[in-house]
Write a protein that binds this DNA or RNA. Structure first.
Lengths: 218, 218, 218, 218
DNA sequence: TATGAATGAGGTTTCATTCAT
DNA sequence: AATGAATGAAACCTCATTCAT
C-alpha cells in the first residue's frame, strides 16, 4: 500500500477510535512511523486528509445505493441495502459522530456533503418507489420523500444518539445493528401482507448479528 | 446579579452564539469586563461553567415536563409542553449543537446528563399515558415508550440535523419551530377523532410562529 | 519597565543585531526569560511587535524634524537636525536594513510607512525653505523638493548600501556618520558665502565623531 | 537547453516575479516539471543556484561597461551604456530588490559581489574620465569618483526605493526608466555647452520609453 | 541523469489554567 | 473578590535537503 493510502486508512482508523478532534497530524505520522513532513508531502493539511476520507465514503454511498434493475426483488437484495448502510456507519463512524464539528470547519467539504446527501436522498427514494411498485411496500405517493428523510435522519444521528446515551463512548457493531433494527421497524410498518414475512426474517437476521459476540466488542 | 451568575449567563449566550468550542474562558471574561483570574475564582475550570449551565437546563426540564394533574386537558396545556420544548432547544441550543463533543470531555457531566434524560423519558411517557387516558391520543400500550424515545431523539438532534443540512450554520427560531411541527406531525398520527381538530389548531399556531419575521432572524 | 515595553526594546535590539528575519518570537521570549505564551499575551503576533517599534520610530521623526520657529538659526540647531537623523538611523537600523522585506509582508504597516514618509518629506522641505529664507542655503524654488527627496533617499538606503559594500555586515556608528557627511556635502553645495563656514564646522564635527573609537565598534 | 541552464533561467524568472524569499526549490522544480532531487543533482543547494545567476549578471556587467576606444563618441554610444544599465536592472531585478537579504546569507557570494562592484566602479569612472576628455562632460578631477559612486548607489537602490514608496510591489519597466532619467538628470548637470543638446535628446528618448504602454505593464 | 518520497528542525500561534498581589 | 501577567504544552505547517532506486 502506498504511503498516501496508508495515511488515509490510518487516519480513518484513528479518527474512528478516538474522534477526529483528538487526533493530530503528529499522531497520525507517529502511528505510521513517518515524519510529519512526509505526511505534509502527501497532503496539504489535515482537512485534505478528511476530504480524501470523505471521497471514500462518497464512493461507497454511490455504489451501495443504486436502485436495482432487471432483477427480481429478493431478501438478499434488501439485505444488500441494509448491509451497505451498516458498512457506511461502521467504517466511517467518526464522520457520523463528529459531523457538525467537521463540517463547520470546512465550508468546501460542507458543500460536497450537501451535494452527496441530495444524491443519497434521490437514490433512496427511487429505491422506495421501486419497492412500492414491486409490492414490497405500500406507501402513499406523497409520503415517500418524508419517509426517506426520516430514515436518513435516523441513520445520520443514530451514532450520535447512542454516544450520548451510554457511559461508554466506544461504538460497537451491536449498537449499529440496533439502529438498523429501528429502520426495519419503520419500514415494516409499510409492508404489504405479502412482504411482511420477509421483514420479519430480516429482523431476525439483524437481531442475530446484533447479539453475536464479535459485534459487542469494540 | 452576582458575578458567578453573570459568568453563567454570559457563557450561555456566547456558547449559543458561537459554539462552545470557539469560546475561550478569556473570551467570556473579556465579554464581562472581568479578569480571567476572577473567572477562575468562581469556577474551577471551563467544564465547571458548563455544568452550571447544565444545572439551569435541568431545572427547566424538571419544571416544564410535569404531568398535569387535577386540571382538565386543554389546548393551552399542550401548548405549554411544546413551548417548554422550544424554550429548552432555543435557550440551550449550544448544548444540542455540541452535545457529543461536550459530553465526551466530561464523564461527570455525562452521568448527570444520562440521569436527567432518564427522568425526562419517564416524565414524558407519563404525560403520553395521561393523554392516552384522557382520550387525546390513542397509542397501544407497548408503543408508548418507543414513541417517547423517537420524539426525544428528534428533539435531541433536530438542531444538529439542521446545522448539517444548510450552508448557513446559524440557528433560527424558525428552524426550531419546524422541528416542533415534525413532532406534532408524529403526535397527530395518534390523535383521536375528538382531538384531531386540536392538533390541527396546534399546527396552525406553530406554523404562524415559524413564519413570523422575528423568528427568522438570528 | 513593563514587560510589554521590555519586549519592544528587546526585539528592537535583537532585530538591529541580527536582522528581523533571523529573530523568532521564541528568540525574543528566551532572551527575556519569559514564556512564548507571555509574549503573545502582550502582542497579537510578530507583526504587532514590529508595528509598535514603528510607532516609536514615527514618534521620533515627528519630534525630531519640526521646522524651527521664533529662534535665530544657529549651528546647534543644524546639529539637532543631523543628530535626529543619526539617532533614527542608529536606533532603528534594522528597519533601514530590512525595510522592503518587512513592508512586503505587512500591507497595513506599509500604509503607515508611506503616510509617515509623506509627512517627513513635507517637514523636511519646510525646514529647507526656512533655511533658504534665513540665508543659510540658496536653492532655487523648484529644486527644493527634488533635493529633499534625494537627501531622503540617501538616508533611506545608506545602511543598505553600506551593508552590501563591506564584508562585515555589522553596522557601526562610524559608517552612519559617513552617511551624514555625504548629506552635508550635498547641502554644502547650496550654502551661501555667509553660511559656508558653518558647514565646514559641521563637517569637522561629524568627522570627529566618525573617527572616535566608540563609534567604530559594533 | 540543458537542465542545468533551465534551472538557472527558471529560477531567475521566478525570483524576479515573486521575490527570492517566496520561491522554494520545490517551486522551481515543479515549474520546470522536474523532481527536486534532480535539481539537487545539478546544484548543491539554493545558494548555488543564486551564485550561478550572479555569474550571468557579472558577465553582463563585464561586457556592458567597457570604456569605448578608437571610436568617436556618439549618442548611440551613450544609449548603449544606459541600455546596459536598464537591462541589468530589469533582467536581474530580484537581486536589486533583495540584495542585502541574499548577501547576508552567503558570505562567498558577498565576496564575489564586492569584487564585481569594485570592477564596475573602475570601469564606470574610466568611462566618465573618457567622456570628460572628449568634452561631453565637465567634471573636476576629484569629483569623478564620488559622482560615479553616487550614480552606482542610485542604480543599486532605485528598485528598493520604488518598492518601498508605492503600494504596488510589482516592478515595471516604466519605473526603471524613471531611475535612468534620474541618472541622466545628474549627468546633465555636468554637461558642456556642446553636449547639452545630446543629453536633452537622451532624456526625450527614455521619457518616451517610460511612457510606452508595454513598459507600464508588469 | 533523474525520480519522488522522506526527513526533521524549527516557526508561529492558541488557550486553559495558575499565581503573586 | 478581583486583577492581569505569566505559563507551557501542544497544534499546525514549511522547506531546504537527502537518499534509495
Amino acid at each position: 500500500m502506498k504511503t498516501r493510502d496508508k495515511i488515509i486508512y490510518t487516519s480513518l482508523e484513528l479518527f474512528n477510535e478516538h474522534g477526529e478532534r483528538n487526533i493530530t497530524t503528529n499522531h497520525i505520522a507517529a502511528h505510521l512511523g513517518i515524519s510529519p513532513g512526509n505526511l505534509y508531502y502527501h497532503f496539504r493539511n489535515k482537512e485534505d486528509i478528511i476530504r480524501s476520507i470523505f471521497a471514500l465514503y462518497h464512493d461507497h454511498l454511490e455504489s451501495g445505493f443504486q436502485p436495482y434493475e432487471g432483477e427480481p426483488i429478493s431478501i438478499e437484495l434488501l439485505i444488500n441495502y441494509f448491509d451497505a448502510m451498516f458498512y457506511a456507519m461502521w467504517e466511517f463512524r467518526f464522520m457520523y459522530a463528529n459531523l457538525s464539528d467537521i463540517l463547520s470547519r470546512d465550508e468546501e467539504l460542507k458543500k460536497l456533503y450537501l451535494a452527496a446527501q441530495k444524491q443519497v436522498l434521490t437514490r433512496s427514494s427511487q429505491i422506495l418507489i421501486k419497492l412500492n411498485q414491486d409490492g414490497v411496500l405500500s406507501i402513499e405517493q406523497d409520503e415517500i420523500i418524508p419517509l426517506t428523510e426520516t430514515m436518513k435522519m435516523i441513520v445520520s444521528f443514530w451514532i450520535g444518539y447512542k454516544q450520548i446515551h451510554s457511559i461508554d463512548t466506544r461504538i460497537t457493531k451491536t449498537s449499529l445493528y440496533e439502529g438498523l433494527l429501528r429502520l426495519l421497524m419503520i419500514a415494516k410498518a409499510y409492508s404489504t401482507p405479502d412482504s411482511r414475512a420477509t421483514f420479519v426474517r430480516l429482523e431476525q437476521h439483524y437481531r442475530r448479528l446484533a447479539a453475536s459476540p464479535t459485534a459487542q466488542s469494540v
